[in-house]
Design a protein around this nucleic acid. Structure first.
Lengths: 222, 222
DNA sequence: GAATATTTCAAACGTTCATTTCAATCGACC
DNA sequence: GGTCGATTGAAATGAACGTTTGAAATATTC
């Protein structure tokens, strides 16, 4: 029986090469279309290496996802660049900025994030864990910020919708990247462009929240 | 040689059944994971029927996409429910509302729209035509509306960003539907819910545009 | 340095799938 | 009702893929 992988935390050399290659291939083609052969070729490993080190293709995928999320959140945590004693607006900006950095930075993390994008549209078993471990806590954090910006008398439904609008704006540039480039529009990629986009989205959101909150107070000034 | 399909406009019975079944299966599984066998079974047709009527799986896919877009835009054109002599705000609302109806309505069109969602994340050759024929004209229309709402002195970059924010908010509920439902949030589906969401997005957007336009005029009132 | 465990390797297995083939069937037209 | 083109049917083909196998190579341990 050659089933059992080595101890769970063994990071042999080929094992790491497999993980790196798998991240590339899964991000590029998705879980199903990615082939074990391709991954092993890029990792300069034998076909059987996946079976030996991870058990099967799906277990490899899970570990890649796990590490991807870890890496992205470590590199750009949601309080990225936050000054001490931040205002709610500061926290919104940091949330948006770090979100965009995770999603758009051309380094490793963005390649990894493409996997999550695919998971959202075409879920595998990995999505459930992902939602619970990552997306729910992040959204809860955002929801708190938006609630604070909306003021105390804003109905929860409005706060929810505004929070979703923030996520929507951030994810858009990843979800629609192929359309955006085909339309001839620039896709933010450099730190400067991403920071600028974060400013824009933050401002747009503040305007939206303000107007929605005003409307929910019954104002009709506009 | 049994290659050539009948005349391009022949709508034989099995041909139509194949198109209907293919729309279901492609929407459910995506192009690659969908199997010709599954499609033919659901259409109560023989496996060879796809080859006979369409040539191959990809040609079938293209025709399904073509018809899907046609159907969705016919059912809910971007000026859906627009009053005569509409204001810019009216036109924005109609654009958003029809967009959401195409994307979220639980009837045929939404199933079909799921294919387009997949195309955006995992493009096939069909996306290029789609962008040119559908998305570019629609976006140009939206861009005009947003430009009008922003006022004459708003930089084009801001108008572009605000237009993208609108698309982002509308697409979000389709792109992230699996996450939204896993988070326990309600996904708008009934005409009432969709209309309500359209109101919310329109208001949010107006607030965003207003603030961005104000900022680009150099105001710092806020 | 022999014994043992770990890791790699080439080859093959079994399955799934799109596509093809060719005979059978159907339908319209003379 | 016989003929011919259009359509359907059952079976086969060939390629791609994940997985498995068992031996060879390498590292580890005593």
């Amino acid at each position: 029986m050659t089933t059992a992988p080595a101890s769970a935390s063994s990071d042999s050399d080929t094992r790491l090469r497999l993980l790196a290659a798998a991240a590339e291939v899964f991000a590029e083609h998705g879980f199903r279309a990615a082939t074990v052969r391709d991954i092993c070729t890029r990792a300069e490993a034998n076909i059987a290496a996946v079976h030996y080190h991870f058990g099967d293709k799906e277990a490899l995928y899970h570990e890649v996802i796990e590490r991807a999320v870890q890496a992205a959140l470590t590199a750009f945590p949601p309080d990225y660049g936050l000054p001490p004693d931040p205002t709610a607006k500061d926290r919104l900006h940091a949330f948006v900025h770090s979100f965009l950095l995770r999603v758009l930075t051309v380094e490793k993390t963005s390649v990894l994030m493409r996997m999550l994008t695919r998971e959202m549209v075409e879920p595998t078993a990995a999505l459930d864990r992902l939602v619970e471990k990552v997306q729910r806590p992040l959204f809860r954090m955002l929801h708190g910020i938006v609630a604070e910006l909306s003021g105390p008398h804003t109905p929860p439904e409005t706060v929810l919708a505004c929070s979703q609008a923030v996520v929507a704006q951030c994810l858009f540039y990843k979800h629609a990247e192929h359309v955006i480039s085909r339309m001839g529009h620039r896709l933010p990629a450099t730190p400067t462009e991403i920071a600028h986009l974060a400013d824009q989205i933050t401002e747009f959101t503040l305007g939206g929240i303000e107007r929605r909150a005003r409307a929910s107070r019954g104002d009709r000034t506009s």
